[in-house]
Design a protein around this nucleic acid. Sequence first.
DNA 1: CCATGTTAGACAGTGAAGGTATCCAATGAC
DNA 2: GTCATTGGATACCTTCACTGTCTAACATGG
Lengths: 208, 208
Amino acid sequence: MRISELSRLSGVSVTTIKYYLREGLLPAGRQLSATQAEYDGNHLRRLRLVRALTGVRGLSVSTTREVLGALAEHTGDTHRLLGLTLGSIGPTEESAEDSPERAEVDALVEELDWDVHKSAPARATLAETLGSLRGLGVPLDRGALVPYARLAERTAVLDLDQLDAIDDPLELAERALLLTVLLEPALMALRRMAQENESARRHGDVHR
Amino acid sequence: MRISELSRLSGVSVTTIKYYLREGLLPAGRQLSATQAEYDGNHLRRLRLVRALTGVRGLSVSTTREVLGALAEHTGDTHRLLGLTLGSIGPTEESAEDSPERAEVDALVEELDWDVHKSAPARATLAETLGSLRGLGVPLDRGALVPYARLAERTAVLDLDQLDAIDDPLELAERALLLTVLLEPALMALRRMAQENESARRHGDVHR
DNA sequence: CCATGTTAGACAGTGAAGGTATCCAATGAC
DNA sequence: GTCATTGGATACCTTCACTGTCTAACATGG
């Protein structure tokens, strides 16, 4: 298919597709001539993925590029690499590596007996968030964090269960990306609703 | 204290503080004269909160203003109102209200027997995310979602437990906001690490 | 083989967001 | 009285994610 058909099928304007091509979010089509390039279903699929990451999840173009790059160069050992790459999702770049919160996070991982890479950006993200909370007068100690971590463990089991049935390593990697990144707003939405429900339950304010 | 001291204590530049004052993220100080205004600890506290919401969580200025407005005008029934307000966190504004996913979400809430407001934006957020996933070939049906929802319930219990000890309604509201919004990156970081751990466990790739 | 439309590629322009800089007159501290 | 600081207003800047426009080279139908 040509670029105009790709545009029509995806709902993304031709100029934007060209922009993505320039930015390296989309591989170039097969050049047929100086003014003709051929795109296929993979391009369409990739384009939809890009729109989901930038639109639903609100990732920046550069973060999206990094994520997609990791996806391409890495088919096995999926989660470890996704974990490494996806640290840049939050607007976190300059993190104090030696903060007391970082030590606290490392101690937490130790206590949980988790097999997590020392340089996993999730550690820094967690440390930074804890630092912010402490600065606001809400220090969360390890005791408060461990129950959350146990629930995270069980969430991860659900995540991995969904990936077990997939054989194709390429599809596995993409699916893992979708589950890790795109499911986040869904899980947070569930938490918000569960909070509202629990709050209503405790304070007895029935409203129906 | 004067604005320069507020700036020094918070690490936010004077011009930025003025910007926040203009944008209504920070209440005006007590005017002492035409060229003098007095700020206090509440301003400092509020300023730190603003920086946490915009920085750590990446909220936009307008969303932050909405959230803070809700915080001010609403002291009781905290979670319900936060739930209503915080829907605008994702870059979601134009949602198809009558999508099949929306019906699916409503059915899910029904099945869970959750007491959640019909117009809670979390419903729309969840529906939109499910729609995106389906468009990418990863349809998550209710059966897959319910276990996640059950874990969300237990997370919410932990959240509410932390609020139980607080008496002052103003502090309660602020704490609820922090737990709901600011803890999200922390929980997602925990999930990433738990995924990595679970992946390592299943595939036996020990790396230490 | 010609008229018309489409395409790739390059590059400049746009609009929103989130600040930042500058200016000003009025002060307050010394 | 002098001088740095302040509040308030306004203009400006930078980044981001596109969008519009242009051009020359094609493709295609007649």
